[in-house]
Design a protein around this nucleic acid. Structure first.
Lengths: 225, 225
DNA sequence: AGGATGAAGCTTAAATTTTGCTTAAAATTG
DNA sequence: CAATTTTAAGCAAAATTTAAGCTTCATCCT
């Protein structure tokens, strides 16, 4: 899980980075709003931690611009401000949560877990049609039958099912599953889609992964809503 | 948007229900955890507001059981407790946010909006008439029905809707959608306008794209009833 | 006024290009 | 060495573009 921290106070920034890396997050640091926005726009993060009062571009403005650019990344605000108006303002600007300094690291961790839960829910299974995925144990079931997938196959299927009913573009897939951050004309995705479809079909799980030509793929629940 | 409040103190419950209904939410009330869980399991809510200390079944337990049953509904906790451990405990049990009593109604509203944002994320959607375009996922809906557009069709529609109520000249369209920067006497635009109109009409979305003879096209909101 | 005329736009079908699927073989990993 | 991952190439299908005939609209002329 990749986290970007945008914070100018070296003390807090360092403390956060160290603490989060101990929890096995991959942490990037930006010391002002402008650079932070650049980072956020050019990389795919799973969470942003943003201070309100930072040089070059305020936290609020970073948040607004990201939302305007269509980013849905969870944003957690840190701030010394504490009037209700400030909180409301920050949340309405596109933030997902809000913590007042000074804060307890344990509570920050809990709130980070909430934001990442939909992505990384180890408690819950992922489901789509007759498919059940247990991210904690790396097991996949089609009904009662267990599928044996290679690590890449599993990662791709997990990513698609986490984003079920939403289109996953080829570039997003390449970034999240293969961790490639530049364009390249590879056809690995196609090949792995073929692998997955073949194994799913063999287990009786058909028509789960649909192609969106020119864009990417989408996992759809077979039953209509 | 439907909200379920699980809260036993009649004062707070009434105050919340009244305030939220003023904001046009449909609010249900349950006075204990057991009945609250029943309500939540048998109806579809967009958000739950749950007090920690309620009779019959604690808020935490309601939350746990809902998550166990596979529900993903956002849950916002209310509580008088305020130690960090309690907060961490509540969030880890499956809550999405956490507010300490007493709280400001404005802040509660802001936090509710955050939880509902992903559902009705009007933020990043383009709209025109009954049409909704999500540029992030490359999806287009006419009401509830999803249209399947090719990449060029999508790009053209997106451009027109972004500029709705404004005339888009042929040369601008060719520049923006086809990236052609010199004049050429092609009739691709006409062809794609035909494609779009046909698909829109098939989805019940008529008279959206109008021709401005000798100039180009315009998307106009149909007069509302 | 009303038909003739030409330009602009619409529609359709066919030609061309792009994209995705599949397979097999090569490279990498452990 | 065996399993996994990646590359590459041929084929098929879909998307895009071109081209041609048809329709509509505005204007001009009788």
């Amino acid at each position: 899980m990749r986290i970007l921290i945008i914070e100018d106070e070296p003390g807090i920034a360092g403390f956060l980075k160290e603490g989060l890396e101990e929890e096995y997050f991959a942490v990037d640091l930006a010391y002002d709003g402008k650079r932070g926005l650049d980072f956020a726009l050019t990389n795919e993060y799973d969470l942003l931690i943003v201070d309100w009062m930072i040089p070059a571009l305020s936290g609020i403005e970073v948040c607004r611009q990201l939302r305007k650019a269509g980013s849905l990344v969870p944003i957690l605000f840190l701030t010394a401000k504490d009037t209700v108006d400030d909180v409301v303002f920050g949340l309405d600007a596109g933030a997902n949560d809000y913590m007042k300094k000074p804060f307890e690291f344990e509570e920050l961790l809990a709130r980070i877990r909430v934001q990442l839960r939909s992505k990384n829910s180890t408690d819950d299974m992922l489901r789509a049609g007759m498919l059940t995925i247990n991210p904690a144990t790396h097991q996949v079931f089609s009904g009662e039958e267990e599928l044996t997938l290679t690590p890449k196959e599993f990662a791709l299927l997990e990513y698609l099912v986490r984003n079920k009913e939403r289109v996953c573009t080829r570039s997003r897939i390449i970034e999240h599953v293969w961790d490639i951050h530049f364009d390249s004309d590879t056809s690995v995705i196609d090949v792995y889609i073929t692998f997955l479809r073949r194994k799913l079909e063999a287990a009786g799980c058909e028509q789960l992964i649909h192609t969106i030509r020119g864009v990417g793929y989408i996992v759809r629940e077979p039953a209509s809503p």
